[in-house]
């Protein structure tokens, strides 16, 4: 059993799994109505060990091991929320959310609107998502567009341990349902987590690297790919401004539009297939709202419009720094 992360210090270097664990623990300490539920989250600590140690500290009533029943888990969380709880559901892998999709999109998302604001639905659904871990379909997917398309849901994804720690706590205190996408390829690299202040609100996007020539936008694991691309571009004398979306629904356009006003060029990136995607939405909105400042068409760099490929070729499917730079070259050619 690992000891709980000490959050009384100013900061610590943690992997995202531990930062999420510390965020969940902090939320459970702050509010007794917060409880966790999911498959193998208790004594096993979750497939990715995000909930490790929490059952020992909070007991099996607040860290609830459930049967394999995604619709049952999410629907049960809805009923708990109706009686004042703040449930956090873990979905084991991205592709496993679909058996619970009906409860999320037909019930959870709409309950408040349907009943004229007569209740709140403070439910968080944690979903490890994305590729780069050498697995296959159902275990490497990026289904965020399905949820972003659904009014009534908030959708977020941290790209680093600090954001993971704070965004988890903010998601839990939100009175709206939050689909919390955790980029599993970023679970293990360590990063500094500052325990004294968050710095950025849950639904704000953020410029993580200032630049002047091309704006590149992404979320989750794409942010580190964009940083690598920016390093490579810098060596060639091209300055990329990198924006971490953080919130997928709603999208905070102010930093994006501000950046595009400066660069006139935008490349939007994502691991998900590009057709009817989050990137498509951003491209359309920027075209609508910043048409006269654009020097080139907005380009998207996405996963291909296929099911998730065999592990051996995932590096072709997932946007790489090279594919991002190809798009950067194309927008600079205008």
């Amino acid at each position: 059993m690992t000891a709980a992360t000490d959050t009384s210090v100013a900061s610590a270097s943690l992997p995202m799994t531990k930062a999420l664990n510390a965020g969940l623990r902090r939320a459970m300490l702050d509010d007794p109505s917060v409880l966790l539920m999911g498959e193998d989250i208790g004594s096993l600590g979750g497939v990715f060990r995000v909930t490790e140690g929490l059952i020992a500290e909070f007991g099996d009533k607040r860290v609830l091991d459930t049967p394999l029943a995604e619709s049952g888990i999410i629907g049960t969380a809805i009923g708990l929320a109706m009686r004042g709880f703040r449930p956090v559901c873990e979905i084991q892998f991205d592709g496993f959310v679909f058996p619970g999709f009906d409860q999320i999109t037909s019930q959870l998302a709409r309950m408040r609107n349907r009943h004229e604001g007569g209740l709140i639905m403070p439910v968080v659904i944690r979903i490890p998502y994305g590729g780069h871990i050498g697995s296959i379909e159902h275990h490497q997917e990026s289904p965020e567009a399905y949820f972003a398309h659904t009014p009534g849901l908030r959708v977020v994804s941290p790209s680093n341990p600090h954001d993971a720690y704070w965004m988890m706590q903010e998601a839990i205190t939100s009175n709206d349902p939050v689909i919390f996408f955790e980029p599993k390829s970023r679970y293990w690299p360590k990063g500094e987590v500052r325990f004294d202040e968050s710095g950025t609100p849950l639904h704000a996007s953020r410029v993580v690297r200032a630049g002047t020539d091309v704006t590149v936008v992404g979320h989750g694991a794409m942010v580190s790919v964009l940083s690598q691309a920016a390093d490579l571009a810098q060596a060639e004398g091209i300055s990329l401004e990198v924006i971490d979306l953080r919130s997928i629904s709603p999208i905070d356009y102010a930093p994006i539009l501000g950046s595009v006003q400066k660069t006139g060029r935008l490349v939007v990136t994502q691991e998900a297939p590009g057709f009817v995607s989050v990137g498509s939405e951003i491209a359309a909105t920027v075209a609508e709202r910043a048409f006269y400042t654009l020097e080139a068409p907005v380009l998207r760099v996405s996963g291909f419009d296929t099911p998730f490929p065999p592990a051996a070729v995932e590096t072709h499917f997932l946007p790489s720094p090279d594919r991002v730079l190809e798009a950067v070259d194309r927008v600079l050619a205008y």
Binding site: I74, Q107, R114
Partner: peptide
């Protein structure tokens, strides 16, 4: 607590209310 237009939509939330 509803009225559910989708067949069976109410069963998991009702179960959750009972757990609460």
């Amino acid at each position: 607590f509803g009225g559910y237009g989708i067949v069976g939509g109410q069963i998991p939330p009702a179960t959750g209310a009972a757990l609460a």
